[in-house]
Amino acid sequence: MTRYAFPQDLRDAAQLALHQTQAEYEQYATTLPWSAEPMPGWEGDKQLHSGYRSSKPDSPGYTEEQRQQVAAYRARLLELSTQVVTHSFWETLKGNGLFAAHMQLKHVHDAPEPQGEAA
């Protein structure tokens, strides 16, 4: 497998920050009401053979602070995604190498770097 020598700014300032911001946003989203706008709750029909009945309670909608925080996360994610996608490193690759490098970059922080291995 080819190992790519990603520039430090692409690895850390962009990709790692993107992963961290996405994780923070997903964690924050779990604290939000199920609807951004006030909506009445609902209860679905009972499912055949399981007895399961889907439902949602009334949603008060997002507060202004929650709307601002979601907008800030989305703006930061767009900024970081743009940095990753438009980085000059990608111009050095062609064809299948480009796709493979993109996939490798997504997981570059999953495991420790092997010592002494070059790209």
Score class of each variant (00 low, 15 high):
Leu18Gly: 03
Arg11Cys: 01
Ala29Glu: 08
Trp34Met: 11
His19Met: 05
Tyr25His: 04
Thr30Phe: 03
Gln47Tyr: 09
Arg53Phe: 15
Gln15Gly: 11
Ala36Ile: 10
Asp9Val: 14
Gly44Asn: 04
Ser54Lys: 04
Ala29Leu: 10
His49Asp: 03
Gln15Arg: 01
Lys46Glu: 10
Gln22Arg: 11
Gln47Gly: 01
Asp9Pro: 13
Tyr52Pro: 13
Asp9Gln: 12
Trp42Ile: 06
Asp45Val: 10
Ser35Tyr: 02
Gln15Pro: 02
Lys46Asn: 01
Glu26Pro: 15
Gln8Thr: 00
Ala13Asn: 07
Arg11Gln: 05
His19Arg: 13
Thr31Phe: 13
Glu24Ala: 10
Ala17Leu: 09
Ser35Cys: 01
Thr31Tyr: 09
Ala36Trp: 09
Gln22Asn: 07
Thr30Ile: 07
Arg11Gly: 02
Gly41Trp: 07
Trp34Tyr: 10
Glu43Leu: 11
Ala5Val: 10
Pro7Phe: 15
Tyr25Glu: 01
Tyr28His: 04
Pro38Phe: 05
Thr31Asn: 06
Tyr28Trp: 14
Gln20Trp: 11
Ala14Glu: 00
Ser35Asp: 12
Pro40Ser: 08
Leu18Asp: 05
Leu10Trp: 12
Thr30His: 08
Met39Ala: 08
Ala29Asp: 11
Phe6Pro: 03
Ser50Gln: 02
Gly44Arg: 04
Asp45Cys: 12
Leu48Ala: 11
Ser54Ala: 09
Phe6Ala: 05
Leu32Tyr: 01
Tyr52Trp: 14
Leu16Pro: 04
Gly41Gln: 12
Ala23Lys: 15
Trp34Gln: 10
Gln47Val: 10
Gly44Phe: 07
Ala17Lys: 15
Leu10Tyr: 05
Trp42Lys: 06
Gly51Pro: 02
Ser35Met: 10
Leu18Glu: 08
Ala17His: 09
Leu32Arg: 13
Ala36Ser: 07
Lys46Ser: 11
Gln8Ala: 04
Glu24Thr: 09
Ser50Met: 05
Gln15His: 03
Ser55Met: 14
Pro7Tyr: 14
Ala23Leu: 07
Glu43Ser: 08
Asp9Ile: 12
Leu18Ile: 12
Gly51Ser: 02
Pro7Ala: 12
Gly44Ser: 05
Thr21Asn: 11
Met39Pro: 00
Arg11Lys: 08
Asp45Ala: 13
Ala14Ser: 15
Tyr25Ile: 13
Gln47Asp: 06
Pro38Arg: 00
Leu32Ala: 10
Gln47His: 09
